[in-house]
Nucleic acid binder design. Structure first.
Lengths: 190, 190
DNA sequence: CCTCATTTAGTAGTTGGTACTAAAATCAGT
DNA sequence: ACTGATTTTAGTACCAACTACTAAATGAGG
């Protein structure tokens, strides 16, 4: 039972409650080997609401989270963008993205990162993937930080050609050639 | 303040709690113009859990939803499989999978379905996508039921060649040629 | 009027807290 | 080693929203 100092404990407390909001003060006190009062003080200082309020929050924060998780977390985070020219994104491989057996990232998450980046780099209301030619060069593993770079080769006549390369620590793991269709009419029917 | 008889009240109570689980016994008592005890008796007879339990249920359901959407629902559901030969899967396009603006499915979800199917159809401990050649023929829209069919063309020397076609109501929307690497050593390092 | 069902009242106990006071333990600096 | 501040515990009173129980009041029908 390693004893933390106050600041450490509070940091960890935040994380703990963040990924399991269903923990009572009593259980937290056990976890940290301190009294309930200490936990209460910590929550007070960190402005963490009580169990019931936390549960209620989870219950009321409806579909928003689902959307953001299913969309954003798959996509990666865009870290640099020059519209119609090039873009960079970061995608960190997490538990949900790998095969349990060997911790290797499922290919379609790497594709998703690249594809999303292609959609993002095109500065038009509508951008759809028409076709792609992709190669998985090396395996990405759990916790890898995948940096994806998209470069627009040419854009004309509502068609864009984009090359994407994804790397982990400088080593190429994925390469793709994307052909995109774009249009300035966003809500077109096709 | 119309007075109901017991059976009526209980019926309405069920509905009420169903579409707003956040009602306390006190508020329900006001709504029906009866005492709290009556409401409690009703809940007892109808086996409706108390407020906090209801909220907790909602919260845990949401958490489950998020998990399943972010992990499994991307893949689709396998509806038929003949190992090392062919497989079918169903993927229903939901809110999280489409562009908000025009309700068109993001390409990488269709790819994910196809890719997952390729991994599934190969009956080996390790199956990884090496490369793919894909085409998005038509747009898939919100609530579309996408049926994906993977056919293994040949398998030898740890390489498999698979053709995937995805259709919505019989119309081809996606086509892909996948080259997979497989091995019987599941937890190999690459 | 009697009787059975229904409703209401009231008490004790529970969980998971807040808000507060005060004592004890720990640590940090001189 | 001593002092003063910080941190941790302990303890009390109180709250919401209950459960579980007992008991009384009210209805409604034969």
């Amino acid at each position: 039972m390693a004893k933390y100092k106050k600041s450490e404990r509070q940091e960890i407390l935040l994380e703990r409650i963040n990924d399991d909001p269903f923990l009572t003060d009593e259980k937290l006190a056990e976890i940290f080997g301190v009294s309930i009062q200490t936990i209460r003080l910590d929550r007070l200082e960190l402005a963490i609401p009580e169990l019931r309020a936390r549960i209620k929050n989870v219950a009321t924060e409806e579909v928003d989270k689902i959307k953001s998780l299913s969309l954003q977390e798959v996509t990666g985070e865009i870290i640099d963008i020059e519209l119609n020219s090039q873009a960079l994104s970061l995608f960190i491989i997490e538990e949900g993205h790998v095969f349990e057996r060997n911790q290797i990232a499922r290919g379609h998450f790497l594709f998703a990162q690249a594809n999303s980046l292609c959609v993002a780099v095109i500065n038009e209301p509508l951008a759809l993937t028409k076709s792609a030619d992709i190669e998985f060069k090396r395996q990405a593993k759990l916790h890898d930080k995948v940096i994806s770079k998209a470069v627009v080769n040419n854009m004309d006549n509502n068609n864009a050609s984009i090359t994407v390369e994804s790397k982990v620590e400088g080593r190429l793991i994925f390469k793709g050639q994307f052909e995109m269709y774009y249009s300035n009419e966003g809500d077109n029917n096709g």
